[in-house]
Computed example of a mutant assay.
Amino acid sequence: MLNYRQLHYFWVVAKTGSVVRAGEQLNLTPQTISGQITLLEQTFGIDLFQRSGRQLELTEAGRQALPYAEQMFQLGNELESMLRAQPKEQQIAFRVGVADVVPKSIVYRLIAPTMELAEPIRITCREDKLERLLADLAIQRLDLVISDSPMPSHLDIKGYSQKLGECGVSFFASAALVERYGRDFPACLDGAPLLIPGQETVVRSRLLRWFGEQQISPRIVGEFDDSALMQAFGQSGSGIFIAPSVIAEEVARHNEVQLIGQTQAVTESFYAISVERKVKHPGIVAITEGARRELFN
């Protein structure tokens, strides 16, 4: 079996070109180093060095072995540096995937309780399409996926969905649009310019069905997968837009828009999807308990 201490002595002698200089670097006697290298050579039945006058030169076997030793001890130095750089208090990694249709304000409010845990936690958030996130969840690149829909039944992926909560939707608009369309909700939406969520969102079909039930025909002027972008267009006065009612005050304040009306007939739901049926990760526990106790109470 390879003796790594002996290999290290070989590497240092090869780098310094002298047993004496290697001994000075390693704080060992030349005799100790020579003896250990001799044992290494005897183990494999080969010579790693040959004398040329007073100098040591690598044999062909020594030249072939040196690059391997270089890689091994370079990686060892990198490993030592990495371990020394670790914080004294180890953090728990928490890798969260967020479906790109989930409003960012909802995501923040869901994840915020993890920042108050007694255990130090390090959060990594990644936004993407739901199916790609679930693929990463299946191979444990993610601990949790937050989505507006439960685990799709057609995917051959092991995962469990926990409903975090649901809420109605609120309609917002700039002051100019409120002045023109802001009375007699929801009838005021008929013919009004409307910004709606994109086709990949669950709430879109519910919204359009509700318009049909109310015999309302808004004029759709924009479709957005990204709720933040939709709100930016709404803030500019491009059209009326919707947002989950649980963040209605924040949306109105942040975007400087006004609330036109709310409905519980159209709801948005949010789910935590994990590979564990019984959740153990403290980050997931904090999200599920916080959502049910505070956000969607």
Results as ranks from 00 to 15, higher is better:
residue 2 L to M: 14
residue 7 L to V: 06
residue 9 Y to Q: 10
residue 9 Y to F: 15
residue 13 V to S: 06
residue 17 G to N: 06
residue 18 S to F: 04
residue 20 V to N: 05
residue 22 A to S: 08
residue 23 G to K: 04
residue 23 G to F: 03
residue 27 N to L: 10
residue 34 S to R: 15
residue 36 Q to W: 02
residue 38 T to L: 12
residue 39 L to Y: 00
residue 40 L to I: 04
residue 41 E to P: 05
residue 43 T to E: 14
residue 44 F to K: 08
residue 45 G to Y: 05
residue 50 Q to E: 14
residue 58 L to K: 02
residue 61 A to L: 02
residue 61 A to N: 01
residue 61 A to F: 03
residue 62 G to F: 04
residue 64 Q to P: 01
residue 67 P to N: 07
residue 68 Y to I: 09
residue 70 E to V: 04
residue 73 F to Q: 10
residue 74 Q to C: 08
residue 76 G to I: 02
residue 94 F to T: 03
residue 97 G to Y: 07
residue 103 P to K: 13
residue 103 P to F: 08
residue 103 P to V: 10
residue 103 P to G: 10
residue 103 P to T: 06
residue 104 K to V: 05
residue 104 K to L: 06
residue 105 S to P: 00
residue 107 V to Q: 15
residue 114 T to S: 14
residue 122 R to C: 02
residue 127 E to I: 15
residue 130 L to S: 03
residue 132 R to P: 00
residue 141 R to K: 15
residue 145 V to G: 04
residue 146 I to R: 04
residue 146 I to D: 04
residue 148 D to I: 13
residue 155 L to R: 11
residue 159 G to M: 05
residue 169 V to M: 07
residue 177 L to A: 07
residue 179 E to P: 00
residue 180 R to G: 00
residue 181 Y to Q: 06
residue 186 P to C: 15
residue 194 L to M: 15
residue 194 L to E: 01
residue 197 P to C: 03
residue 198 G to A: 12
residue 204 R to M: 13
residue 207 L to S: 09
residue 222 G to Y: 08
residue 223 E to G: 02
residue 227 S to G: 04
residue 230 M to R: 09
residue 235 Q to H: 15
residue 236 S to A: 15
residue 236 S to I: 09
residue 240 I to M: 12
residue 241 F to E: 10
residue 246 V to W: 00
residue 247 I to M: 08
residue 251 V to D: 02
residue 251 V to T: 14
residue 256 E to L: 14
residue 256 E to V: 11
residue 257 V to K: 12
residue 259 L to F: 09
residue 263 T to Q: 10
residue 267 T to W: 03
residue 272 A to D: 06
residue 274 S to T: 15
residue 285 V to R: 11
residue 285 V to N: 07
residue 294 E to G: 00
residue 295 L to T: 07
